[in-house]
Design a protein around this nucleic acid. Structure first.
Lengths: 193, 193
DNA sequence: TTGTAAAAAATACTTTAGTATGGTATTGTG
DNA sequence: CACAATACCATACTAAAGTATTTTTTACAA
């Protein structure tokens, strides 16, 4: 690892530690660089903004999703596996990421045009896995064939994202997994009589 | 109207005019008070923050929703009217509110705990009208009776909010009405075979 | 080895939201 | 009316993100 990469990692870890300790808003960039023993300019060599640290962190989502995918029981019905996958994603968010950092991520997707695309790209694993499951569901006859798989993926991702947003907004006042699953279930089975 | 109210209105209109002209981020509070010919302290007497001006603006939603409700054709099926209502809400957002201010509202719901509750209260008309339509739909047999109406309302509101969020995030790159309607339609009819 | 490009450091600067203060004017109420 | 509360003004201030500049150090490739 080159020295530049090491510095970036150092800043990254110091920042995350401070964020978890005091909350994102209560941590200044000055504080981060002080803890890391570097200069402010150095911070901005590696990160375009304070929030870019959070964006960086969301690479861990991809890793996690891929791991879940590997561990899934491929003999179960596609919809069952979809449920499992969503549950795992929610648990990871609740337990490993936490409310504060989700809030900052969602804030950021609304502010920074550059990060936004990153975040979408970061959803790649999520998209890919859900799409795979939906196509399987369509082939199995578990799902409607009148919609394109990628259309349905975007609806499901949106429903997940919407629930995450509400969760962050209401400061975690409900169980993310439960609400996500109930909502996605409703989306799949429909509200009509 | 008392002098205080007049000052608040003045600040409000100056702020909105500047926001529409230059975009929210490019307008400073100093600029607003300069345009209004008041002092910065005065601004903060009336508004808790720069974003509170936007929150104030969202009262117009309630007025609009109530107007739409009155104009609706009460003989049409409930689901038809729901569709109409959502379409109207989206058009209003696209044409009267605009991308930038929606973005700021959604940003704010994630930052300010106080405004958040306000914003939810502001959704009151939206909630109330949708709930009314859903209950009618249940009584008509148009909708499933296995869910409570208020649960379904929260799903539909979330789907609308989720689509609005995505619209703001992707800088208005799709038609809000079309996407909202397609998505809510999917939610009502379900994805399953 | 040496030249160059990137990284890092130190430090000063700019911008802007929001706060604080201290004093004056307005307004509504007993 | 009197007086208390609120609105208002002017101005200075704080805090923090992000920028700019200059100099030094490091990495790496010809």
């Amino acid at each position: 690892m080159t020295k530049g990469e090491k510095t970036k990692q150092l800043l990254y870890h110091c920042a995350l530690e401070l964020f978890r300790e005091k909350g994102y808003d209560k941590v200044s960039v000055n504080e981060i660089v002080e803890k890391a023993g570097t200069a402010k300019g150095t911070f901005y060599v590696h990160f375009g903004s304070k929030a870019a640290v959070i964006a960086e962190m969301f690479h861990t989502y991809d890793d996690y999703y891929n791991r879940i995918e590997e561990e899934m029981d491929n003999t179960a019905p596609a919809l069952k596996r979809l449920e499992e996958f969503i549950r795992a994603s929610c648990s990871f968010t609740e337990e490993e990421i936490g409310l504060d950092l989700i809030r900052v991520l969602y804030l950021n997707q609304l502010t920074e045009g550059e990060l936004e695309q990153d975040a979408l790209r970061r959803d790649r694993a999520l998209y890919r896995i859900i799409e795979k499951l939906l196509i399987e569901g369509q082939n199995n006859g578990e799902l409607n064939n009148q919609f394109r798989a990628d259309t349905m993926v975007s609806w499901i991702v949106r429903s997940i994202r919407g629930t995450f947003y509400e969760w962050a907004m209401k400061e975690g006042s409900f169980s993310l997994s439960e609400e996500c699953l109930r909502y996605v279930h409703a989306l799949i089975y429909g509200l009509k009589a």
